[in-house]
């Protein structure tokens, strides 16, 4: 922020944030073999819904690498002119370590709006707004592409928790920096995100990436369905 916010106690202006020297010894690269083995598998996740009292639906998804808290507020009435269908807004927030720039977070957020616009039954909610807040509380991945599948998953589960009508459960999968968000059991794509690397889209690679993503998506989705069914039994 370039303008000093006088509503906050920001401390002396001439203080410099702590800058750490880069480590003297080169950092050890993480084991490659392990990484490959982990790549397509599902990391162990802990999912918890209804954790936040003052909102309509919330979900916490945690693993060793990250912790994402999503809360849904709405549907609530919006001011202004009549709209024949609901409007979704998504805010992505940095957690305790301010890793991502605000414009990058907004870019991801507006991309997510595209996904949820296509899976939430917005006709049911005329003249209403659905506000979704995603907090990336802890994130050790350093790469937002790796995090997006879980952001989509937690947002989807929080929407379910809030009782907002959805056409399909969606989630995303990530392979080699290609993030694909599917619906209809993998028949259709609702979102694609690629930030790094060349697109080698010859027929073979494309089919292989698509297939692996679809497999991962089906795994994640069955995880979500299992979680939701368990909750129902209780």
């Amino acid at each position: 922020m370039n303008v000093q916010d006088r509503r906050r106690l920001l401390g002396p202006g001439n203080a410099k944030p702590i800058a750490f020297a880069s480590s003297l010894e080169p950092e050890t690269e993480p084991l490659k073999a392990e990484e490959v083995a982990k790549k397509d598998g599902i990391p162990s996740l802990s999912i918890k819904s209804d954790i936040i009292e003052n909102c309509n639906g919330s979900t916490l998804i945690e693993s060793d690498e990250f912790s994402i808290v999503t809360s849904v507020y709405g549907p609530k009435s919006i001011r202004g002119s009549f709209t024949s269908q609901g409007t979704i807004s998504i805010q992505l927030k940095n957690g305790i370590v301010e890793k991502y720039q605000t414009n990058e977070l907004k870019e991801v957020a507006s991309w997510l709006v595209g996904i949820f616009n296509s899976v939430v039954n917005l006709e049911k909610y005329p003249k209403s707004g659905i506000d979704i807040f995603v907090n990336l509380v802890i994130d050790k991945t350093n790469d937002i592409s790796k995090l997006i599948p879980f952001i989509v998953m937690s947002t989807c589960l929080a929407l379910v928790d809030s009782g907002i009508e959805m056409i399909d459960l969606t989630t995303a999968a990530e392979i080699d920096g290609n993030v694909i968000s599917f619906t209809k059991g993998g028949e259709e794509i609702v979102g694609f995100w690629k930030d790094n690397g060349d697109a080698v889209f010859n027929d073979e690679d494309f089919t292989s990436i698509l297939g692996r993503c679809k497999e991962q998506y089906i795994n994640y989705k069955s995880l979500m369905v299992n979680y939701l069914l368990q909750g129902k039994k209780k």
Partner: peptide, 18 residues
Amino acid sequence: LSRFNASHMMNEDSQNNI
């Protein structure tokens, strides 16, 4: 969550300034 907490993986994160 902090950087200098040896018992946790967070300290491997070079961007962590907590």
